[in-house]
C-alpha cells in the first residue's frame, strides 16, 4: 500500500525505480517445499538458473551456489529439471520448516 498524496505522485503513472520489485520478498509464498542444493551432485549445467521463474537460483562466478529463499516460491521446476550426476539430482525438494 502506498500512502503517498496525489501531489507526490509522478505526472502520469510511471515507476522510475527499475527492478524495485526486489523489495517484494516472494519467498513468503512458499508453503510446502523448498529446494535444497546438493553440491556433490551438481554438474553446473545451470539449467536450474535458466528455468527458475523467480530468479532465485544463486550463481557466483558462473557456478550455482544455492537458492535465494527470499524470492523462491517453491515451485520445484528446478528440481524437476535437474539432470544431476549419476542418477542423483543436485536439487531436492524438502519440507518447508515453519
Amino acid at each position: 500500500m502506498s500512502a503517498r498524496g496525489y501531489s507526490e505522485l509522478p505526472v502520469g503513472p510511471v515507476i522510475l525505480d527499475a527492478g524495485n520489485s526486489r523489495l517484494l520478498k516472494t519467498g513468503a509464498w512458499r508453503t510446502i517445499n523448498r529446494p535444497v542444493f546438493k553440491e556433490e551432485n551438481c554438474s553446473q549445467c545451470l539449467l536450474c538458473w535458466l528455468f527458475c521463474p523467480d530468479m532465485a537460483v544463486r550463481v557466483e562466478d558462473g557456478k550455482v551456489v544455492g537458492f535465494d529463499y527470499e524470492y523462491c516460491k517453491g515451485c520445484g521446476v528446478c528440481a524437476q529439471e535437474c539432470p544431476g550426476k549419476k542418477g542423483q539430482k543436485a536439487i531436492a525438494m524438502e519440507e518447508e520448516k515453519k
Binding site: M1, S2, A3, R4, L9, G12, P13, V14, I15, L16, A18
Partner: peptide
C-alpha cells in the same frame, strides 16, 4: 534510466 510505464494502479493510488 529505465522506467516502467502503465503500471497496474490499485485502490491505494
Amino acid at each position: 534510466n529505465p522506467k516502467s510505464f502503465g503500471p497496474l494502479v490499485l485502490t491505494d493510488q
